[in-house]
Simulated assay, not measured.
Amino acid sequence: MKVILTCNTSLGAGGQGVCLANAATGLKNLADLTVFCSGNKTPQTNFPVFPLGNSQWSQRLLSTPILRRRNDLAVLLSDLYFDRQVNQQLKSQDCDLIMGVAGQTNLGFKAAKAKGAKAWLYCLNNYLPFMQQQIQQELKVLADSTVATMNPMMLRRFANECQQADLIIVLSEVAKQTFVKAGFAAEKVAVLTPFVDTERFRPTAKTDDVFRVLYVGTIEPRKGLPYLVNAFSQAKIPNSELLIVGGASTRGLRRFMENVLSQNSNIKQEIWNFSQTDPTKVFGQSSVLVLPSVEDGFGLVALEAMACGLPVIVTSQCGAADVVNEGVNGFVVPPRDIEAITNKLVFLAENEAKLVEMGKAARITAAQQTPEVYQQTLNKIFVEQLSL
């Protein structure tokens, strides 16, 4: 069987790239796999990978100051370019199954299905109109004029992809329910929970006694960082620090961060590339990770933190809630609930023995999400879907 996997990112780069790499490794064990990705460098793998370059128009838009705020258009142009390249490649490629990332594979699906192939839509977020709704709500709260929502054309492409898809694969039960609530049949949506490298992401000894709250990720509207900042400030925990690892994606959030950093000496911002540096340098010096997302298909960083022995606080609209056992390895709070985050932070800061116990439980949970379990789930999906 010939399988084509497509994703408009570099293999292994960032959360999307890691999910792509995991899926590629799993599919390679089941079929004759070819991967199409973006970029110009061909990674060293034991299966064919073809980088298809990047959209020059998207790059020019992002490099033009007056247009830079049109991130929605830049993403759309990038995805359109990538999808067209995949469409061209498929004219000379055999294909029995195509698995493509949501928003990036409308033309690719059409080309593959014209050859009689099955199409699986790989959605790394929640149902995109739900995601759009959450982002727009945040932009009103932030009074941010930056265009950080999805372009209407992207949503139309996504709707076409869903219509063409024989199966939709998501990262969590949380994400699946957003599709089910939108009217999709439950049997059309399969959950493939990600895993992390528990050798790279591992517990290490903390070298100070600061109660350090960690956030890792792009500072964008759907990630809900202002709720964490307000909760941390409200908690007033002695000898504490909030470490924010990541850059801001919108002008309004950049201004927000400038104000926060100028007014709070115990809130810090750093930029780390975990694909090139030891992640334990950050996770190992932290006490708890908080992912206050108002929308997140999974939030792989939560599982990475758990592998490093940190309890986590996530929202009920974050897919990582799937692996959180309330009060055992972390907490699940309602989205946008500052008081709930505050209470959990205070509880962990005042109960060191419980914090340590929950951290150990978190590591056990992460260690159970193995590549073998991932492969078994993928095998099951393969057997059930391709025998229909």
Rank of each mutant, 00 (worst) to 15 (best):
G319K: 03
G299F: 01
K110H: 14
V332N: 08
V174F: 10
V290Y: 02
V383M: 12
D32P: 08
V18Y: 06
G299Y: 03
T146C: 12
F36M: 09
T315K: 02
L124A: 06
K268M: 04
A366K: 01
N266A: 08
G26M: 03
A112I: 05
L77N: 01
S286C: 04
G217M: 02
L139Q: 15
A186L: 10
S55W: 05
S262K: 12
F298E: 08
Y122P: 02
A186M: 11
V332Y: 09
V189A: 07
A367H: 10
I338L: 08
G299L: 02
L124E: 05
T207G: 03
G103K: 00
E295R: 08
L225W: 02
A102C: 13
A307Q: 04
I169A: 01
C162S: 12
R336N: 11
V189Q: 04
L192Q: 05
A114N: 14
N259C: 09
V18M: 12
V229T: 06
A190H: 11
Q276P: 05
A24M: 06
S265G: 14
F130C: 07
T218L: 14
P65A: 06
L20E: 01
L80V: 15
Q177W: 10
T280K: 00
Y227A: 10
N87S: 15
D94H: 15
Q56S: 15
S287V: 07
S240M: 10
E187N: 15
L228M: 10
E295Q: 14
L77H: 04
L192C: 05
L76G: 02
T365K: 08
V196G: 00
T149P: 04
V333W: 01
L11P: 01
V294F: 06
L386F: 10
T9W: 07
N273A: 09
R69Q: 15
G359H: 02
D94E: 15
T280P: 00
